[in-house]
Design a protein around this nucleic acid. Structure first.
Length: 344
DNA sequence: CGTCATGATTGAAG
DNA sequence: CTTCAATCATGACG
């Protein structure tokens, strides 16, 4: 009650008066050089207010209600609101009108694309797409990494949604609270519905900046996770000597047409325990690099030619030299010269 | 450290 | 889609 009285005094502009001052209308008149009838009225009002503070709660409520129902109340309320609108609010209330932040949208889109926001996706989610695209091939590849990635992403996703929910709830709660408070206070203070609306807007903006931060950090987490996997994939591991051997053997024995069919690729992939796309990569690299530097690789070509010849010879000791797989050479790739010591 | 080899990625072309 | 060509990024090595 005391507080309320003080508050009302504050709004009428009479702060700084001690209780004793207020209690004595003569003092007020003295302080404010009053004397005219309307000021006399203010004095009366103050007197009434102070009386109110001494009343019981029920009485006060009743009186408050009575005041609230006064026929002049709406008019006074709207006038005060208008005045308030024109003064204080015009100073701080203008610079709002936020544009839909493009960065905010960007974050939203990214989270959506990453499968963090939006509806739960099962199976072939963005994670699968990322892994599959990078591995470049069959869905069965990279299962370990895939599940790991998926799990991490799901974890991020869970955290994100939990936090988002929390913020949303807090925002709603706080908004409700403030709205109730303002509505309640609008019975004693000039607070227009518009102002309440504006306050709600401010609260929502504040909360959405918090949400923005959440989204930003979630994005960062996803990016880090992704880059880790991307790096892991990009991190080049040389194929085993054995695999290189198999691939080179195939390449040089099909030098005339070093384009393995899909089945051949699958076969090679199986033999080398690498993926089909890795085989394709290898052949792509090999073809271009062989072509680029025939002279340098000729020696290697000879080595493998000899090797296949020897292998073939060991299988069927006849006709292996003449029918060596490397011999048919009508393609654009220069044939190696065969000399037992590997020289040209 | 620099250099080369090599697997992966990218973009153009078909 | 595949292939080529250029390029990136890392591994191996002196």
């Amino acid at each position: 009650m005391e507080d309320q009285a003080r508050m009302m005094l504050g709004h009428i502009g009479l702060t700084g008066l001690s209780h004793e001052d207020v209690g004595d209308p003569d003092n007020i008149r003295k302080h404010h050089n009053l004397g005219q009838p309307q000021q006399q009225d203010i004095g009366d009002i103050l007197q009434q207010i102070m009386v109110i503070t001494d009343e019981s709660l029920d009485e006060a409520q009743a009186r408050k209600h009575a005041l609230n129902c006064h026929r002049m109340k709406p008019a006074l309320f709207s006038v005060l609101c208008e005045i308030k609108e024109r003064t204080a609010l015009s100073i701080r209330g203008v610079q709002e009108e936020d544009s839909p932040d493009p960065q905010f949208l960007r974050l939203d889109n990214m989270l959506l694309a990453e499968g963090v926001a939006g509806p739960e996706r099962s199976g072939a989610s963005a994670a699968a797409a990322v892994v599959a695209a990078a591995a470049g091939g069959s869905p069965s590849e990279g299962n370990v990494e895939h599940s790991e990635y998926k799990e991490k992403l799901a974890q991020i996703r869970r955290m994100y949604h939990a936090e988002l929910e929390k913020y949303q709830q807090a925002c709603n709660e706080f908004t409700d609270h403030v709205m109730n408070l303002l509505r309640e206070q609008s019975r004693t203070r000039p607070i227009s519905p518009k102002e309440i609306e504006r306050m709600v807007g401010i609260i929502h903006r504040k909360f959405s900046t918090i949400q923005m931060q959440l989204k930003q950090s979630t994005c960062e987490a996803v990016m880090i996770l992704r880059s880790r996997f991307l790096d892991a994939r990009r991190k080049r591991r040389n194929f085993s000597k054995q695999a290189a051997e198999i691939l080179n053997t195939y390449f040089y024995s099909h030098l005339a047409n070093p384009y393995p069919s899909e089945e051949a690729k699958e076969d090679l992939a199986r033999k080398c325990s690498i993926t089909v796309s890795q085989v394709a990569n290898w052949f792509g690299n090999k073809r271009i690099r062989y072509k680029r530097n025939v002279a340098k690789l000729q020696e290697e070509a000879n080595r493998y030619a000899v090797k296949t010849a020897v292998d073939a010879a060991s299988v069927s000791s006849q006709a292996s030299q003449a029918n060596s797989p490397a011999t048919p050479n009508s393609g654009g790739y220069p044939a190696p010269c065969y000399t037992p010591d590997g020289r040209l």
